[in-house]
Nucleic acid binder design. Structure first.
Lengths: 156, 156
DNA sequence: TATTGTTATACTCTATAACTATA
DNA sequence: TATAGTTATAGAGTATAACAATA
């Protein structure tokens, strides 16, 4: 039986078989995620913005005045860790926390003017990065298929 | 224009839009990876074996006598961190490091008898876990499609 | 000189507990 | 009593530098 070519084909003279691991869905999932996130970081290196930070900024931009807990829940970040993340965004002058109107326990999140300006650049970078990913996948149809399959895996 | 239903449909009365983030490939990739790895850990909870540890054990089982650097490279783990991982496998009595024949710098890795017995169970658990993932994806064809697309993203 | 394995170390991400102030 | 935010802390995972032994 002929061995199917894959990421680690058994070359003549090679005595190491990685196939039992490289054929596992979870393994490929992790490799792809690492690869995409690493390239995201490179793509956003000039602004030193990480994936989670961009997500938070984008959610504030689209939901000005929203509460920390709203964003934390969507992104799967714990309240406790989200506070530190927001501190860094505040410290760089991109976001502000104001006292919320109705519920004095929660903070209303907003972008500063600097934050708004930054987001014009970041959104352009993100659009470009997404284009690169779609290109790598082979087209829009492949992207849609991938996202559909990933969502099936995310559902508990 | 009607908003397409997605993971966070805009409900009547809801004022939070997650769509700008949830439509990003990298975001779905991360969510799916976290979901699959969390369920892997639950699935292997009785043996307290993590994904990386199972991968290492499976590679040793399929390549008895291989070097640490071989496995570390395939899994994308640094030499420095791989040493600690092997220490834990050794400490649990599942693996052994012997002096390699040709090259005295490297260690030849083997499963112990206990390790061999363990792998019978772990391989069964892994086969079952993979079946669950395939079922979740909708079938073998969908799994193959997913793996193909993930490999495209992993290629530099 | 280069490579294998190791230790030490630091940084990020994640998880829990405990506190405060509000509801 | 429950929730929003915060702090402190601990555990993983990952990164680099430096070293010993060997090639």
């Amino acid at each position: 039986m002929t061995e199917i070519a894959n990421q680690s084909p058994r070359k003549a003279g090679s005595r190491f078989t990685a196939t039992p691991v490289t054929s596992i869905v979870g393994f490929q999932l992790r490799r792809a995620q690492l690869s995409v996130f690493q390239r995201f970081q490179q793509h956003f290196a000039d602004h030193d913005v990480r994936p989670a930070e961009y997500s938070v900024l984008a959610l504030i931009a689209n939901n000005p005045g929203c509460k920390q807990i709203d964003i934390a829940r969507v992104l799967g970040i714990k309240r406790a860790n989200f506070a530190a993340l927001m501190n860094r965004l505040d410290a760089r002058g991109w976001t502000e926390r104001h006292a919320a109107e109705g519920d004095k326990r929660s903070q209303a999140l907003f972008l500063t003017e600097a934050g708004e300006k930054l987001m014009v650049e970041l959104d352009a970078l993100q659009a470009e990065f997404e284009r690169i990913c779609v290109e790598q996948l082979g087209g829009e149809a492949e992207r849609d298929t991938l996202v559909m399959l990933l969502r099936r895996l995310s559902e508990l």
